[in-house]
Structures are given as structure tokens and as C-alpha cells.
């Protein structure tokens, strides 16, 4: 869907600070933009150029609050739709999370209790979003320190049911999975094998750091070996259509995009070799 090339496409999250280095990197097969960071009235020229060059651009949302109990703001969905249309996005993605309650914004993705009521609510909201955007929607797992403690399902079972009910795609963030496994003691390999990988649209991977015994998914540090190992493990099970690097901060001369992409590619190839038995 993102890039039909018979191999896993490699992409990056487009950020203004990365515009030049992305423009000069011919190895990128696709890009993702964060909808909230783009002004619809003034889409950056650098991004338009890449689009005109034929690079697929997906649109990623942060603030729909699909798991929130407040009705989703139609304006936000409409904005996603218009941006996706403007960029010719093959798909749109959002998180299984909530970001506001009682009208108060948190500015952070919070987990939804994995209960029947939350599932019904999510299914309804996802259905509404899909009807308006008119494009495939991929749903992403989040990294969180918080667990509700009364989940009726674990995350793979929750995603299987949600994606099946809403006929949505999966955006698997292996770094978020790595963080949750570190912080909650989940079994990453068992998790991967139980996720609905037949619905996999693409994969996120980003850097992080451990502080005071907890792993923080910062998107500001280099890719940890643990997340790369999970990417390799995933590629040993299935061929992801696309894998994308997320880097939001600490974009300075120490950050080497080409090096991080090469590390990603290395993990993908190691996984592919294992999958092919070579």
C-alpha cells in the first residue's frame, strides 16, 4: 500500500529540521508527516517537492483521542482528511489511546483500559473516522508507563478484536512494544506472534533511553539494540510492507540519519534471512 516494491520499504518521519537531509537521501521509499505539525494553509515547500517527486507520504495523527469518551471533534477528522487528500496519502494512522478528558488536554497519549466498554467505544470512533477520511486507517500501539490493572484482554488480543471489528490496519511500533516489555515485563516474542500481523501496514521504530529504571521512548536517542532485535524478530515472522524511523528531537550534527537507516535495514535483512531459512 505504501510502496509496492516486493521488499520492505524504508521511510522516515518528516520533520522541518530533517527536511534537507531527507531531501538528499535517495534511499528513502516513503515519508510520514504528523498532521498536527503541518499547517494546511502552508504545507512546507520541501514536502510538496518530495510529493511531486512521487514519494508516498502517509499522514499520522496524534490528537483524535480515539479511546476518549468525549465525542471526536469532526474538525480534527476533517483536517486529517484534507491533509491526506492534499498529500495523496495512501493511508492515515492514529493511536489506540486517549489524550483528553472533561475538555482538558494532556498533550500525551494515554492508554485505554482494555475492557469491553472501551472496545465498543473505540470501534464506534474508528468507524466514524474511517467514514470521513475515506482512506485506509492504521492503528498504532502506544508506549506507556501506566497500566489500568483491570484489563479483560491483553494488548495483542485487544488489537486482534479491534482491527477485525473495524477492518483497520496495524501500525506496529516496535519501540513502543520494546518500552512496554521493559517497563511492564511483557514477553515481546509472544506478543509479536499474537498480533494481527496479516493486517500490518507499516512499522515505527525510534530511539529511547533508560532513566531511573524505566525505559523512555524519547525519539531523541539512537535506536536501541533491543528495539532493533524486535524488528529483526518481526521480519523473521513476516515481511513488513514498510518500516519507518521516528526522530523528533536532538536533531543535530551527532544525529546520522543514514547510519540509523542502515541499522534498520540490517535488522530487516537479518530477519528476512531467518525467515527464508538462509
Amino acid at each position: 500500500m505504501i510502496a509496492e516494491r516486493g521488499r520492505t520499504a524504508i521511510g522516515a518521519g518528516w520533520r522541518p529540521e530533517l527536511a534537507l537531509v531527507i531531501d538528499q537521501n535517495p534511499a528513502l521509499d516513503f515519508l510520514e508527516v504528523t498532521a498536527e505539525n503541518i499547517d494546511l494553509a502552508a504545507v512546507p515547500a520541501a514536502l510538496q517537492l518530495l510529493r511531486d517527486r512521487g514519494l508516498p507520504i502517509t499522514v499520522h495523527g496524534l490528537s483524535l483521542s480515539l479511546g476518549g469518551t468525549e465525542p471526536i471533534n469532526r474538525g480534527r477528522i476533517e483536517r486529517l482528511r484534507r491533509l491526506a487528500e492534499k498529500l495523496g496519502a495512501p493511508l492515515v494512522s492514529e493511536h489506540v489511546a486517549f489524550v483528553r478528558a472533561e475538555g482538558v488536554e494532556v498533550g500525551h497519549l494515554l492508554p485505554v483500559p482494555r475492557t469491553e466498554v472501551a472496545m465498543d467505544l473505540l470501534a464506534e470512533n474508528v468507524g466514524t473516522v474511517k467514514r470521513i477520511i475515506g482512506r485506509p486507517l492504521a492503528l498504532e500501539n502506544i508506549a506507556t508507563f501506566i497500566e489500568w490493572g483491570d484489563g479483560e484482554l491483553d494488548e495483542p488480543a485487544f488489537f486482534c478484536e479491534l482491527l477485525e471489528r473495524t477492518d483497520s490496519l496495524l501500525l506496529l511500533d516496535v519501540s513502543n512494544l520494546y518500552a512496554n516489555c521493559r517497563n511492564h515485563g511483557w514477553d515481546a516474542n509472544a506478543y509479536l506472534r499474537r498480533m494481527p500481523l496479516h493486517r500490518l501496514a507499516y512499522v515505527h521504530i525510534g530511539g529511547g533511553v533508560e532513566r531511573h529504571g524505566l525505559y523512555h521512548d524519547t525519539h531523541a536517542h539512537s535506536l536501541p539494540e533491543g528495539a532493533l532485535n524486535l524488528l529483526e524478530e518481526l521480519c523473521a515472522i513476516v515481511r513488513p510492507p514498510a518500516v519507518m524511523l521516528e526522530r523528533d528531537d536532538e536533531i543535530d550534527q551527532r544525529f546520522d540519519l543514514a547510519l540509523e537507516l542502515a541499522r534498520m535495514r540490517g535488522a530487516i535483512e537479518r530477519g528476512e534471512h531467518r525467515r527464508n531459512g538462509s
Partner: peptide, 20 residues
């Protein structure tokens, strides 16, 4: 969705947001 059904979830989400 039925507002009565989601009210407990709304309360808990609001509680989490306030505590944050």
C-alpha cells in the same frame, strides 16, 4: 454509545488526567 454505559470509563479517564 449509551452515555450511562461509558460514564464509569469517562470518570476514570478524567481521574487519570486530573492526577497527571
Amino acid at each position: 454509545m449509551d452515555p450511562d454505559r461509558i460514564r464509569p470509563l469517562a470518570t476514570r479517564q478524567a481521574q487519570l488526567v486530573r492526577s497527571l
